[in-house]
């Protein structure tokens, strides 16, 4: 991955921003909090600078750790604000196979989400909490436990899609067969991922 590493200049403050993953589409400046989109060899500003406050998480961008025997690197962080607070999503890559995943951190609870390959497009408005919906071929009986409209508060490090702080996104979360199924409906793209909760004891720092 280091082969693709390169540095950019923050279009807002001029600070040096390192990109490790060539596929990253958004970069957050660690100095001023400006989110930028990668376009070719340059960066373009997206939204206004917003340095995310560190709330004492165990995770941080750039760290390497091991979860259930698999080493991973934390590449970025996305913070989503909703009616009752906020949650963080840590964008990680497993070092054994370069697989992308997310760690959702919400009020001291942790879920490892791995992206699903397909999804069914659902109407956010029609989904009812407590109902069963088909989210994908693999998950056809998802029991919806929550839905919320939330705001992208900001990003940090590298993210695999183009985020704009302040964007509104719809989130639907459900459960099937002991797995948490999450659907994020962003303005331009939809992501579905399958999660399993874990405890911090299962994480060891490298």
């Amino acid at each position: 991955m280091a082969l693709f590493a390169r540095e950019f200049e923050c279009p807002s403050c001029g600070g040096r921003i390192k990109r490790e993953n060539a596929a990253s589409k958004s970069l957050g400046c660690p100095y001023c909090g400006q989110t930028s989109h990668v376009s070719g060899d340059s960066l373009s500003m997206a939204g206004t600078p917003n340095l995310l406050i560190d709330y004492g998480s165990m995770f941080s961008v750039g760290m390497v750790a091991t979860l259930r025997g698999r080493r991973f690197r934390v590449s970025g962080k996305l913070r989503i604000a909703y009616e009752d607070g906020f949650w963080d999503e840590w964008y990680i890559q497993f070092l054994d196979n370069n697989q992308d995943a997310w760690i959702q951190e919400d009020d001291g609870g942790f879920i490892l989400f791995e992206p699903a390959t397909d999804y069914e497009r659902l109407s956010f408005h029609d989904i009812k909490v407590g109902g069963y919906y088909s989210f994908s071929n693999a998950y056809q009986q998802v029991f919806v436990t929550s839905k919320s409209r939330a705001k992208v508060e900001g990003g940090e490090g590298e993210l695999p899609f183009a985020i704009i702080p302040g964007d509104i996104a719809d989130f639907v979360e459900g459960v099937e067969d002991g797995k948490v199924i999450s659907m994020e409906i962003l303005p331009k793209e939809t992501h579905i991922s399958v999660g399993t909760p874990f405890k911090l004891d299962e994480v060891s720092l490298n």
Partner: peptide, 20 residues
Amino acid sequence: EIVPDNPSLPNESSHWSFMK
């Protein structure tokens, strides 16, 4: 808090469970 295996809310029945 747990993730249920067979999630549901109780219905008219007096019996119910949401785990395998």
